[in-house]
Measured scan of single mutants.
Amino acid sequence: MEVRTIKVFTTVDNINLHTQVVDMSMTYGQQFGPTYLDGADVTKIKPHNSHEGKTFYVLPNDDTLRVEAFEYYHTTDPSFLGRYMSALNHTKKWKYPQVNGLTSIKWADNNCYLATALLTLQQIELKFNPPALQDAYYRARAGEAANFCALILAYCNKTVGELGDVRETMSYLFQHANLDSCKRVLNVVCKTCGQQQTTLKGVEAVMYMGTLSYEQFKKGVQIPCTCGKQATKYLVQQESPFVMMSAPPAQYELKHGTFTCASEYTGNYQCGHYKHITSKETLYCIDGALLTKSSEYKGPITDVFYKENSYTTTIK
Rank of each mutant, 00 (worst) to 15 (best):
R4T: 12
R4N: 15
T5L: 12
F9S: 09
D13Y: 01
N14C: 09
L17R: 12
Q20S: 13
V22P: 10
D23M: 13
M24Q: 14
M26V: 13
T27F: 11
Q30G: 10
Q30L: 12
P34T: 12
L37R: 13
G39T: 13
D41P: 14
T43M: 12
K46L: 15
H48A: 14
H48K: 14
P60D: 09
N61Q: 14
N61K: 11
D63C: 09
T64W: 08
E68Y: 05
A69M: 14
E71W: 06
H74S: 07
T76C: 14
T76W: 10
L81M: 10
R83W: 02
A87N: 14
L88T: 04
N89C: 11
K93F: 10
P97M: 15
V99D: 03
V99G: 07
N100G: 15
G101I: 01
L102I: 09
N110H: 03
N111I: 03
A115Q: 10
L119A: 07
L119F: 04
Q122S: 03
L126H: 04
K127N: 10
K127P: 12
F128G: 01
F128L: 05
P130G: 02
A132W: 05
A140C: 13
E144Q: 09
E144I: 06
A146R: 06
A150V: 01
L151G: 04
I152W: 04
L153E: 02
A154F: 01
A154R: 02
K158Y: 03
T159C: 13
G164H: 00
E168Y: 07
E168R: 12
S171N: 15
Q175D: 07
H176A: 05
D180I: 06
C182Q: 00
K183T: 11
K183P: 02
V188P: 03
K191W: 06
Q197N: 11
Q197I: 09
T211L: 08
S213P: 02
E215A: 09
K219S: 11
Q222R: 14
P224L: 14
P224W: 09
C227M: 01
G228F: 00
K229M: 15
V236I: 09
Q238G: 01
V243H: 01
K255R: 12
G257M: 07
T258P: 00
T258H: 09
T258R: 09
C261A: 05
A262L: 00
E264C: 06
E264H: 06
Y269A: 15
C271Y: 12
H276I: 04
I277A: 00
T278S: 12
T278R: 07
S279V: 06
S279H: 05
E281R: 05
L283P: 00
T292K: 15
E296T: 11
T302G: 00
V304R: 00
V304Q: 00
S310Y: 15
Y311H: 15
Y311A: 07
T312Y: 11
T313Y: 15
I315Q: 15
K316G: 15
